[in-house]
Design a protein around this nucleic acid. Sequence first.
DNA 1: TCAACGTATTGACGAGCTTCGATATAGTAT
DNA 2: ATACTATATCGAAGCTCGTCAATACGTTGA
Lengths: 121, 121
Amino acid sequence: MTNTIDREERTLGTRCCGDTSLAHMTPAAAQELSDDFLIFGHPVRLQILDMLGRNRGQVCVCDLEAALPVKQPTVSHHLKLLREAGLIDCERQGLWAYYFINQAAVARRRAAITEYLQPLG
Amino acid sequence: MTNTIDREERTLGTRCCGDTSLAHMTPAAAQELSDDFLIFGHPVRLQILDMLGRNRGQVCVCDLEAALPVKQPTVSHHLKLLREAGLIDCERQGLWAYYFINQAAVARRRAAITEYLQPLG
DNA sequence: TCAACGTATTGACGAGCTTCGATATAGTAT
DNA sequence: ATACTATATCGAAGCTCGTCAATACGTTGA
């Protein structure tokens, strides 16, 4: 039986795992990855991405506004965040702005997220 | 060529996609999924989970505190959030509290996240 | 030119999150 | 008992995020 957890020898003032076996992600890597999670951490943004995924290339802001429980400035705000994160792009056509998913960018985020989560469970 | 995007016929005051083709996630589903993302949306929590993943069953709070850029009450706070989310559990042994990952819970979150992201890109 | 329209931006407000000092709780060693 | 230890909780301060009314901007149609 390898890797027996040996807690009996612990004395006060002693750290459990004294050495580098606790080596972990750098704070920078953790920060970057948490940003990857955070951009998906809002229901309105999830719904926007879902709608864009189901209606590729045909969705303008007024459509989103009609389907979402927030007002137009808020929709524009979340669209801007998603655009700055690189997850979506838009194409202006006259008055309308048609939004669509940047599939490559989403795939990259999904890969980073999966790579982190997989070893955990 | 199916699914041609037909933007020429648009007139003012008309929504692009008038019908149910925009059908999307329910707000409740979006809220629940965004919570799944949010619990991973902090660098300290990501580092905690990473350390617990690498040192199964041997990590106590003082170890985490030593490796993280925050003070002990903050570590305890994030541990509590992770515990309430079901992602980790702990086992008290004398003065020490040994934390470990709930692998099944992490796997469930990962499945929900992947199921959402996969169709997008 | 002018009014109506779709979208983006600004500014302000409220809510929630993160952090930490202080303190509480509970186990250990002398 | 007493002093010390490890962890949890409390309370407050600071900060970020989400929201929307008001407004700005650019386009369209008359």
